[in-house]
Design a protein around this nucleic acid. Structure first.
Lengths: 190, 190
DNA sequence: TCGTATGTACAGAAAAAACTTTACGTTGTT
DNA sequence: AACAACGTAAAGTTTTTTCTGTACATACGA
């Protein structure tokens, strides 16, 4: 573990370290909700408590892992806008720091991952919808076929409605409108 | 693949199968957002197009997988309220069907998984917060220690604020209040 | 009460993912 | 222009996860 805690007693350092570790492990573990592996989650936790940007070498040393792993971990985190690359003058090494605005991180996650899923699913649903509609039109008098298709179509329509709603929810998150609906600071009083 | 499509031509059956398959694969793949494996996602997709509850044996045959795998997959889906067990009279076998209300499925996911993460993280944050506060109180005159602690405390406080917000957002989802804020049916007109 | 069907725990096999080492292309410095 | 440092691609290893087969506990029916 890289140690930037100087000028305090070992016991004090140990106490701080312990307090941090508890948080790092909790956060790291729960980042699987973001599709992030435990190791990368712990890396994120490490960076969270860092007071200045880190290089890949520093991360590797602190995590006791290879620089390559740090590189891939950082890329994962960057793809989710959870860490940012910082341009430090005079250093050839890339420097990274965590995005401190977690509300933003949360909404970005939806804007990135969930949006993509919604789009993919909507596309598949609509394409199949068109195909089934065409199939139904080709055989208007085949009762059995018509009933099968209409069962599937109803399911597809329900799914599309849901994804359109989800798309609007993601709009609300991405635009920040959500913070008008659910304020960052709780409403006072009753 | 279990075939409940009778009374239509093989070509028609093939067309329906193709339309379904596209959707099943899209949905199955994107269910990793729910922490669900591709296989289990495909199982879910299969059940989605089923018009009656399925038994584990039927699933195994349709998926060409062992019944044991179906059992574990179904349990995962049940834990997320994505499928329900149905009590069919006269059959000794358990029967399952997908939850058709996907809005509910979505909000349940947050109420189950995200809520748990929020609680775990808040607990860790608060416990460390207390510890650090105590440490600071023990050594009021150690300037270096105080500055270290106050840096950590600020990060912790920000994190707590975020999780409290997220907790309220999850409240909004779990209670269904979200559907007043972001209606299921889009607002008409401009 | 016994027998049989059913779901799942458990152990092992197969597949997938994570991690490391090595090698290489790129970039910035001398 | 040559060199050195850096980040990452690629290949191989280790670890983890998923999947299967077997065994077992439970519950229902005869």
């Amino acid at each position: 573990m890289i140690n930037e805690l100087n000028g305090i007693t070992p016991e004090e350092e140990q106490s701080i370290h312990k307090a941090r570790k508890r948080i790092i492990e909790a956060i790291g573990k729960n980042m699987d909700l973001y599709g992030i592996t435990l190791s990368t989650g712990l890396l994120y936790g490490l960076m969270f408590f860092q007071n200045k940007p880190m290089t890949l070498d520093e991360m590797g040393e602190a995590m006791e892992m290879s620089k390559t792993s740090m590189s891939t971990g950082i890329r994962t985190l960057m793809d989710l806008n959870m860490v940012n690359k910082v341009w430090e003058k005079g250093s050839r090494k890339d420097q990274y720091e965590v995005e401190r605005d977690w509300h933003q991180t949360f909404t970005d996650f939806f804007a990135i991952k969930w949006r993509k899923a919604v789009e993919m699913n909507l596309q598949a649903l609509k394409k199949s919808q068109v195909e089934l509609r065409a199939l139904a039109d080709e055989h208007p008098n085949e009762e059995t076929l018509q009933s099968y298709i209409s069962l599937d179509m109803e399911k597809i329509n329900q799914a599309i409605d849901y994804y359109l709603w989800l798309d609007r929810l993601i709009d609300t998150l991405e635009s920040g409108e959500i913070f008008n609906l659910v304020p960052k600071k709780p409403d006072k009083g009753g």
